[in-house]
């Protein structure tokens, strides 16, 4: 009889403990994964894989550093200004913010290279700096393109280049095959002449295989 009661108490205890452990239904935290690893969710998604975006941004930075020495425009007595330009996103399913996130990797990689640092000045978005100046310094001289007591010297348009991106997706068979093509180019702010473009990066993805 005592054994029978003990069994019931034990089983009821296990039930209470089990139910307590289950609630509330919060997600357990997982460990961090390397950015270059491809996860199950990424393999099964039709969107371009983040690992491909990492590889692409590394490739752009590498290629630009290699080509900089040969580019006449980038080998003058003064450094040229480079600003982030537009991203043409014709993928249909990948948010532009994804490309923007990985575009910052290109800038970061280039800032780490002495070849690039000696030739390029990375310039922050005008609106962003104007907002910052307004916030930090008040109204006076807050327009960064106006020369004045507190204002900076404006950027020389002929010495300024935009880093623009183009992303395309060719799709067949209800997302069965997705071919992504991505490239970056540098164009002069004054003439809009394209002075450099990377070899387009292509990746074909077949989600779920």
């Amino acid at each position: 009889m005592r054994i029978y009661r003990g069994g019931v108490v034990l089983a009821a205890g296990a039930l209470v403990a089990g139910l307590a452990a289950c609630s509330p239904p919060k997600g357990e935290q997982t460990r961090r994964v390397e950015i270059t690893d491809t996860t199950k969710a990424e393999r099964r998604s039709a969107q371009v894989q983040p690992a491909a975006l990492v590889e692409f941004s590394d490739q752009v930075a590498q290629q630009l550093v290699e080509d900089l020495i040969a580019l006449q425009e980038f080998n003058g007595p003064t450094r040229v200004n480079v600003v982030f330009g537009d991203i043409v996103n014709k993928t249909g399913i990948v948010p532009t913010s994804d490309f923007e996130a990985f575009r910052t990797r290109v800038r970061q990689k280039l800032l780490q290279s002495s070849v690039s640092r000696n030739r390029i000045r990375w310039i922050e978005n005008r609106q962003k700096v104007e907002d910052l100046r307004r916030k930090e310094l008040g109204g006076a001289g807050s327009d960064v393109n106006q020369e004045g007591a507190n204002g900076p010297s404006p950027l020389a348009a002929d010495k300024t280049y935009f880093l623009d991106g183009e992303m395309y997706r060719v799709v067949r068979g209800d997302d069965a095959v997705n071919l992504y093509m991505m490239s970056f180019n540098l164009s002069n702010a004054q003439s809009r002449e394209v002075v450099w473009t990377n070899s387009p990066y292509e990746i074909k993805q077949t989600p779920g295989r």
């Binding site: 997600g27 997982t30 961090r32 994964v33 390397e34 950015i35 690893d37 996860t39 199950k40 969710a41 983040p50 990492v54 910052t104 990797r105 800038r107 970061q108 800032l111 000045r121 990375w122 310039i123 922050e124 005008r126 700096v129 910052l132 100046r133 930090e136 310094l137 960064v144 900076p152 010297s153 950027l155």
Partner: peptide, 18 residues
């Protein structure tokens, strides 16, 4: 804040899976 130049830039990247 004067020239708009980025003088330092670094990043940290990682993934989380669910």
């Amino acid at each position: 804040l004067t020239s708009r130049e980025l003088v330092f830039l670094e990043s940290v990247e990682f993934k989380k899976t669910a």
